[in-house]
Simulated scan of single mutants.
Amino acid sequence: MSKLLVAATGLAAATALTLGGTGAQAASTTLTPAGHSFAAKLTGKATFVAGSTTMTCTVSASAPGTGGNNKIPAAPGNHNDAGPVSATINPPTFSGCTTSIVGVSVTVTANATNGAWAVGVQNGAPATGGFTIPKGGVVLKTSGFASCTITASPAGPTAVNGTWTNGAPSTLAISGAPVPATVTGGFLCPTGNQSATFSATYQITDTTDPAQQITVTG
């Protein structure tokens, strides 16, 4: 049971995408088309693993809404001479989640209460990308055999990095990324600090002009 709940903490990682490759030696990065809105949508399944326990979600997405989230910066803000380019996004949604333990279910809520979500990219070989989850930005609640609350990124923002591939559509692939969490609850809950790994691939599409592709270059 405790392994299941530790695995559940990995769900927070899905909501975390930050730019990799920061630093003085980072290559220049350009994210195009400048000023266009974009959506991130899970393709396949998001998998959270801790020990022998797995939790899987089949639906996850972050889409534009009112305001300026999910929008590539206008030029020249879509270019960085020596580092990544980032944009704020709406908190992603998660559904279709199941666990490998009979009798335990989970719901997931993402929020921006303590800061903004972001997605960022860094040109390179390969190009990288990631989500940033703000402090406490994902809360998972289990029910059934155990009623526990798992809060992701409890101490501050957490970066979850992966590999970016230009294409039609472009993709961001995350593999085995760690995410911290704290767990509270009753007798069967593994209370205290926990961690897990997260793997998923998101398609990044242009919602301003679906005929164009979101692309990372130098």
Results as ranks from 00 to 15, higher is better:
131 F>C: 13
62 S>V: 14
101 I>H: 07
152 A>I: 00
200 A>C: 04
55 M>E: 12
28 S>E: 01
180 P>G: 12
129 G>V: 12
113 T>N: 09
28 S>Y: 07
168 A>W: 00
125 A>F: 03
27 A>N: 03
64 P>Y: 01
18 T>C: 08
11 L>D: 05
178 P>C: 07
191 T>E: 00
89 I>C: 04
48 F>C: 10
142 T>R: 02
70 N>H: 03
144 G>Y: 07
35 G>R: 09
170 S>V: 06
154 P>T: 14
173 A>E: 01
113 T>W: 05
56 T>I: 08
122 Q>H: 13
41 K>N: 11
73 P>G: 15
36 H>R: 06
35 G>K: 09
89 I>L: 02
111 N>E: 01
204 I>P: 09
58 T>W: 02
100 S>K: 14
17 L>F: 02
185 G>Q: 02
159 A>W: 07
158 T>P: 09
41 K>P: 05
95 S>I: 15
60 S>C: 12
150 I>A: 02
148 C>H: 15
5 L>W: 00
160 V>A: 07
198 F>W: 07
214 I>P: 10
201 T>M: 09
90 N>P: 03
95 S>F: 14
89 I>T: 09
127 A>L: 11
23 G>S: 04
97 C>K: 15
118 A>P: 13
99 T>F: 13
53 T>E: 11
153 S>G: 06
65 G>Q: 14
207 T>G: 03
153 S>Y: 00
20 G>N: 00
66 T>H: 00
46 A>W: 10
113 T>F: 10
177 A>D: 09
53 T>S: 08
78 N>P: 13
178 P>K: 10
213 Q>W: 11
42 L>T: 11
181 A>E: 04
122 Q>P: 03
71 K>D: 05
89 I>W: 04
45 K>I: 11
26 A>K: 05
191 T>M: 02
190 P>E: 06
210 P>T: 13
50 A>T: 10
94 F>R: 14
146 A>C: 09
72 I>A: 00
145 F>S: 04
23 G>T: 06
63 A>N: 15
195 S>Q: 12
46 A>P: 06
100 S>T: 15
144 G>N: 00
143 S>T: 15
129 G>Y: 11
79 H>W: 05
119 V>S: 02
31 L>M: 13
18 T>G: 12
148 C>Y: 08
42 L>V: 08
11 L>W: 06
210 P>H: 06
48 F>N: 01
151 T>P: 06
61 A>Y: 00
65 G>L: 07
69 N>D: 07
93 T>M: 08
